[in-house]
Structure formats: C-alpha cells, structure tokens
C-alpha cells in the first residue's frame, strides 16, 4: 500500500452524474494506490460506484457524467491533465479493460482477429502480418486455438468470448488491467476458469490488475489487497491475507458475514439490512450509519476519514480502533 513507486495513484477522485433529479455522486474523494504487479480487489454492492471508479481511471466517463475533481497518476503522469487525443494513446497501451459484459463487447460484424489487430495497430507501428501473428499468440495464451482467429464473435460461447476479451485486453501489454465484473453472467465453472486465467496471466506478465467485483469471496483468495467501496467512498483498504478473519469497517464485516460457509460450525449467513443509499441525497455523516448495527450519534454527524490503523490498513470508521483491536468481532 506504499505510495512510493506506485503504478497508479488516485488522489481525491470524484465523479458525478448530472441528471434531471440532481447530482449523483457516484464516486467521491477516492484516494488509492496500486503497485506494479499488484492484484487489488475493488469490492462493493451494485451501484456503489466501483465501475464508475474503474472507468474514471481510463477517463471513459460519458455525459451526463463527469470527473469533477482529483488527480489520476498513472506511471508518474496525471491523466487529468491529458487531452482526449492524448488519452486515446494511453488507453489500451497503458491501461486496458476487460469489460462487464464481454458477451456484447465484441463487434458482431468483425472477425475476432480483426478486432484484436485493430487495437494493436491503433497503438503500435507494426505490419498487419506482425499484428495478426501476435493476435494468434494472444489467443493461444488464453486457451483459444489460433485457427479461430478468423471466426466471428457469435461463433464462440460466453466463456470463450470472455477469453477473447482478455486476449484483446493484453494486446498492447498494458501495465494496468481493469477487470470490470468480467465473470458476471458466466456459470460458476467458467467463472472460476476465467478468473484463474486472469490470475495466471497477472503473475506471468507482471501486470497490475484491479478486479472490480461485487463478489468478495471470489476475489478474496487471488487478490493481494482489497479496497472496499460503499456509496462512492472507500471505507476500507487492507491486505487480502487474513482479511476475512478481521474486517474492520462494519460494512466489510457485513460483507464477510454474508458469505455462506461450508466448513466449520453451522451458522446463518447474515445479510446487511437496508439498501444502498440514494447517491443524490446521501446520508449525513458516515454514509453507512443508517444500516450500521454499531452506529452512535456521532456517526450521523461527522463523516469519518479514511485513517491508517494500527496494523497499517486504512479504514473510515469512528470506531475503527474498537473493531480493529478485536480480531474476532462478531465471528
């Protein structure tokens, strides 16, 4: 979590969507650092702003949305200072994306090979022939036969399409890869395979990967660190190792306790009561306090800052020390 030498550094990034009903504060004041080769899980409920945060890194926020403030340092360059034209060169070359719905992410009228080749040739001066042969290598890397390079997207199954998307994301060997819920919609077996593939490639290619997911147990094992996001704010930032045993923020505790367990004593798995807050009129104070079992009056008044805890993790809770001190809270 040290910021020195970090590949990606976000400082107070805020992104809002301006709709008729008002300003939807999808991401507010997020600061985060990602080291080279780090696998970080960005976890939160649906609508908590995790995808918006991911796309903000690529500056792919469309109207009515806008990044309203903050700095996005990638490789020592602040992307916020870059024009759209300069961003175009950075996208895919330095940071690539495995999209949320790989099913529809491939253009139905072009061969998959063409779509990978064009992303290579948009960024590198290579011959068509070289681009095609690299495309075949990429497909081979994700476990698709090279001869299928001239097939169309509809000729692949869902899991295969996701593999093609991964191959495409690797086309320009980016240092940072965003995986946006990229296994959602796949069956459990395929999901595990695809995630395993991402994990494998991440370590062999030494990429940094941001795994955006709503599914904490899915990313828990393969991530180096975890960023828990709630209502557009980071609430906890911790090492993944041992996180399940000692979540500090009450929201993280809720996420952990909602995981059904196979081993150990029979326990009921608890859901977090209530629903995610309205991001147009977020609650005063801590955004989680209306749903928090430990909320006290101060929680409704002051918004807690994301502060470093005794063990080096960051958490945004007035009573973090209390939860951090006792590793076995509630479990």
């Amino acid at each position: 979590m040290t910021e020195i030498g970090a590949l990606l550094k976000l400082r107070d990034v805020s992104t809002s969507f301006f709709i008729d009903q008002g300003e939807v504060k999808a991401v507010s004041d997020v600061s985060l650092a990602v080291r080279r080769g780090e696998m970080i899980g960005l976890v939160g409920e649906s609508g908590c702003g995790k995808t918006t945060l991911g796309l903000s890194i690529m500056k792919l926020i469309d109207a009515p949305g806008r990044i309203i403030g903050g700095e996005i340092w990638l490789n020592g360059v602040d992307l916020m200072q870059k024009t759209e034209k300069e961003m175009r060169r950075i996208r895919w070359k330095d940071v690539a994306l495995i999209p949320q719905s790989a099913m529809n992410a491939l253009n139905p009228v072009f061969k998959i090979g063409q779509q990978i080749v064009e992303s290579i040739r948009a960024h590198e001066r290579v011959t068509t022939k070289a681009a095609w042969s690299r495309t075949k290598e990429l497909l081979d890397m994700v476990g698709i036969k090279a001869e299928r390079v001239r097939d169309y997207p509809h000729e692949f199954s869902g899991g295969m399409k996701q593999r093609v998307s991964i191959a495409m994301a690797l086309a320009c060997s980016p240092e940072l890869l965003l995986s946006d819920e990229s296994t959602t919609g796949l069956d459990v077996m395929t999901e595990a395979q695809v995630l395993g593939l991402i994990n494998e490639l991440q370590s062999s290619l030494r990429m940094a990967v941001i795994l955006i997911s709503h599914d904490l147990p899915l990313v828990l094992d393969i991530s180096d660190s975890l960023a828990i996001i709630y209502a557009g704010k980071l609430v906890e930032l911790a090492e993944a190792k041992g996180f399940a045993a000692r979540p500090v923020h009450p929201y993280s505790q809720g996420l952990i306790h909602s995981i059904p367990r196979i081993h150990g004593e029979q326990e009921t798995c608890e859901s977090i009561p209530g629903s995610p807050p309205d991001l147009i009129h977020p609650p005063e104070g801590c955004k989680f306090h209306p749903r928090c079992a430990f909320a006290e009056p101060v929680c409704g008044e002051d918004e807690p800052e994301l502060l470093e805890q005794a063990d080096g993790r960051l958490a945004a809770c007035h009573f973090a020390e209390r939860f951090g001190g006792r590793g076995d809270v509630q479990s």
């Binding site: 175009r88 999209p99 992410a105």
Partner: peptide, 17 residues
C-alpha cells in the same frame, strides 16, 4: 450505446474509426 462501441473507444480508436 452498445458495449462494443464503448469498447472501441476504450481501445483508444479514433473517433472516426
């Protein structure tokens, strides 16, 4: 509004492409 057009932009293709 489709995902593949979004992806084309994410890939850093020019507006024309």
């Amino acid at each position: 509004g489709s995902d593949y057009v979004f992806m084309a932009r994410a890939k850093g293709m020019t507006e024309g492409a």
